[in-house]
Design a protein around this nucleic acid. Structure first.
Length: 199
DNA sequence: CCTGCGATATTCT
DNA sequence: GAATATCGCAGGC
């Protein structure tokens, strides 16, 4: 297993978002290792994307989003949760990929402890952007850190998914720029419900 | 299974 | 004062 190389992140956020599916997000926080397979991502661009935090330029909260590709952008949302993003592209661009869902691999007991319970399925520990940061111990201390060399957090090569294993949909929880299908999810993670079409 | 709502910091109007 | 890249709980079916 090997950490994703620096160049991986120096691309358009939409490319990186698809390529991150199947990879492994790993943290070692307070001496506890936790990891999960990335199964859901969303791309947010810079000034051309009205739904992006970067659309209105630099603020106190979003400054890490303007670092160069490969840094972590962690923001506080709804006064309660943290969301983890991977910055992509060149410094100053303001593009990032929001990690929205994982399939737990290592440290499941640690995740249960941090999340305060044992759900019926392990995937419920990490099946939302605010939930997976709690489960993996990702907090504001990691905002702006470099995923290429920080010992506390990195992304392993894992096994990228093929195009036929990936579904694209509109992004979740936004009210602007909804016409763009910039959410990607592993087909294997779709519940047998009234889901997205498999086109 | 589903829908509605409250919590609450940062940013914008 | 309103909106927001969310979540868990209460209640209805």
């Amino acid at each position: 297993m090997a950490r994703l190389p620096h160049d991986f992140y120096l691309r358009d956020a939409r490319e990186v978002a698809r390529d991150l599916l199947g990879r492994t997000l790993v943290t070692t926080i307070d001496g506890l290792r936790t990891s999960g397979q990335i199964i859901e991502t969303e791309a947010y661009l810079g000034k051309e994307d009205m739904a992006s935090h970067a659309f209105r330029g630099l603020t106190g909260r979003n400054s890490a989003m303007f670092l160069s590709g490969g840094h972590a952008y962690i923001y506080f949302i709804y006064g309660m949760y943290h969301c983890f993003n991977v910055v992509t592209g060149d410094e100053g661009t303001g593009e990032a990929v929001l990690i929205r869902g994982l399939r737990p691999i290592d440290g499941v007991e640690t995740m249960r402890m941090r999340r305060g319970g044992t759900p019926r399925h392990d995937t419920a520990l990490t099946d939302g952007p605010g939930k997976l940061t709690i489960a993996l111990g990702i907090g504001p201390a990691l905002n702006g850190t470099d995923l290429n060399d920080d010992p506390r957090i990195w992304i392993d090569e894992g096994s990228p998914l093929g195009a036929d294993e990936i579904l694209a949909t509109p992004r979740i929880g936004i009210t602007k720029s909804m016409e763009h299908p910039w959410r990607w999810i592993a087909a294997s993670a779709i519940r047998p419900k009234r889901g997205e079409s498999t086109t």
